[in-house]
Amino acid sequence: MNELLNDFEQALLAVDAVAAREVFDRWGAENVRSEFLDQIIVPVLDKIGDGWAEGSVSLAQVYMSGRICEKLVDAMILRDPMPVRSHPRIAIVVLEDRHILGKTIVYSFLRSCGFSLLDYGCLGVDDTVKRAIDDKIEVLLVSTLMLPSALRVKDLRRQFDARDADVKIVVGGAPFRFDETLWKEVGAYAMGRTAFDAVSVFAGIEGGAS
């Protein structure tokens, strides 16, 4: 098991899709294929995300790892039914910016982990509020790159509150990484340093944590 975990991690960090597929096939020879998701993909992507937060892994490796895993999961879905996860209604948005990499990484990670979520692309505050309320979103993941966009989360919170919409905002991106108190200042429910942090937030909400 440890060898498979290690080999899969090394394959992803080397951005070697063939080697990653080979690990998947080795797993499938002796195990239930669909369990590759929870037993291998999720812990390895979590570890790679932590590696980025600690500075030992690059963002490019995180991004390419997510892409490789997403393709593997798509291939798995074609062959075997995947476990259905219970989770809140989730959407993800890039707020008032065109830099979509952070959103893409989180979206790809969550899909690879078996979550389904709506992708709003790049939107302003008003459009985000309208769509989230129309879609009855419970958790809104907000990605930002620049400080002004991060500060705009305050307006998002204000508009949801004015409409009595219980939407939990989870923020991520460079401004929140460089100022670890900023997420509280803008009224977010939580901040994600890595994509996996979002999963912990969902678990907390499902478990009734506030």
Binding site: A60, Y63, M64, R67, R98, H99, I100, L101
Partner: peptide, 15 residues
């Protein structure tokens, strides 16, 4: 190139 073609597309180009 991050501005010319977007971050994700550029990383894929590199690899």
């Amino acid at each position: 190139p991050v501005m010319q073609m977007g971050f994700g597309r550029y990383i894929r180009l590199m690899y």
